[in-house]
Nucleic acid binder design. Structure first.
Lengths: 236, 236
DNA sequence: TAGATTGTTAATCGATTAACAATC
DNA sequence: TAGATTGTTAATCGATTAACAATC
């Protein structure tokens, strides 16, 4: 991966989806697949699949297609899923706890090692065997243990400072669930999961779809569908 | 919004972010802002901001810029945030519960009305006052109550069937946290939150960054950083 | 009025799709 | 071999950026 040309974000974002489909094919004991067949399954063009894969190498064979297991393993390597990663959770609230309890991460090699919080009622507890520690001890922990990714699930007011500290202490990846944009140095990678934003775009698309047409569809389940009125305030 | 040209997905995805920044400005009692200033804050071009906004109308004024409160409220309307929405959660596991407990949704007008699950130990419980019901009663519920969005937080094996049923019963929006792609009719909108995929792209970007350079950065926190070895299997 | 900044058209850039020679 | 399908170049499409006349 050393001195090759930069892969576009659009391509990278599709890799996990390829990986998932290939895993499913593997499960179904399918040994080969053409870009054409895969394109039908995935609802994208065969051309795009071939272009995407050829960013990383020629994994196929003319007249044959792709060997499912081989391609699966190659993408696994490209995504770096052939090793394990150490993660910490910063913010032991609802979402933080849910992620700790999500056992599939561990099966894939994403190991949550510790949770940090400010809440005295949480500190000292364990969640699925993983300790919750005072955020004051985080600096020492990060400096003495390998931490590949910090999962940020804390209030938006606190996230920027914490991200900044973590970056200073050497953490290179932030998976940011806090509803704020983080300013970090160039050598730190941030991936945002803005759930509220995601829900908003969903609502926009629903509204768009049903305002473009006559009100026919609104009656789909036989009920009147006057928009409910917004009652109270907001902030997050 | 009736017979206007289709707005691209790229634009729609940026709207919540504009909304967030304008909300922050409003909080700070800033009354006006130019596309130039906002572009600096948001780290995008002023041109893009003006292009984006002009998809929906001319909200600014030459020589002045944009009135923050006015623009904020216009985007609020565009996103449909001036009304309330009824949501149900299908799958009362970790993530489902975390979303129910996330009180900020309600403040914005996203009201979770019910949770459905198959687990007898959950059925009959309440989470933050919201009932957990047998999934067998979901058809009746959906047909007799307005449901704007179903939040799917169930195992990937069950999600496609449930999504199909919900669509049949008239639910027009699916917020899909299950790690699978859903096949639904044209008049149903799906927004995916594939957490595992998101984490994978983050890891890719970290690996890419640190394989492009010499190993200097790996020493950042003074520790050796041999990749850990992947131990066990995977599936999700 | 003069200066600032929009709304919008035109230019550029990048990503997707089509086409096809190479070849298994 | 003949048929199938890749890898890759070329064409198209769409999104972003630049430029500037309109105008507050």
């Amino acid at each position: 991966m050393d001195n090759e040309k930069k892969i576009s974000s659009a391509v990278i974002n599709r890799l996990p989806r390829y990986y998932r489909y290939l895993g499913d094919l593997l499960e179904s004991d399918i040994t080969r697949i053409s870009s054409k067949e895969l394109s039908t399954k995935m609802n994208i063009t065969a051309s795009q699949i071939r272009q995407d894969l050829n960013n990383f190498g020629g994994f196929g064979q003319q007249g044959y297609g792709y060997n499912v297991e081989y391609l699966y393993n190659e993408i696994k390597k490209i995504l770096g899923l052939d090793r394990m990663y150490n993660l910490i959770v910063v913010g032991g609230g609802n979402i933080g706890q849910a992620l700790v309890n999500y056992t599939n991460f561990e099966k894939r090699g994403f190991v949550i090692k510790a949770v940090f919080d400010v809440n005295p009622r949480l500190i000292g507890m364990t969640i699925r065997g993983i300790g919750v520690y005072d955020v004051d001890s985080m600096e020492e922990y990060v400096k003495n243990n390998r931490v590949d990714v910090a999962i940020l699930t804390l209030p938006r007011t606190q996230a920027p400072k914490v991200a900044n500290d973590l970056a200073k202490w050497g953490v290179k990846g932030m998976w940011n669930f806090s509803h704020v944009d983080l300013q970090v140095p160039d050598d730190v990678v941030v991936e945002n999961v803005h759930l509220t934003d995601s829900l908003m775009t969903l609502l926009y698309k629903i509204n768009e779809m049903y305002s473009e047409e006559n009100d026919f569809h609104h009656m789909a389940n036989g009920l009147p569908v006057k928009p409910l009125t917004q009652s109270d305030a907001e902030e997050e």
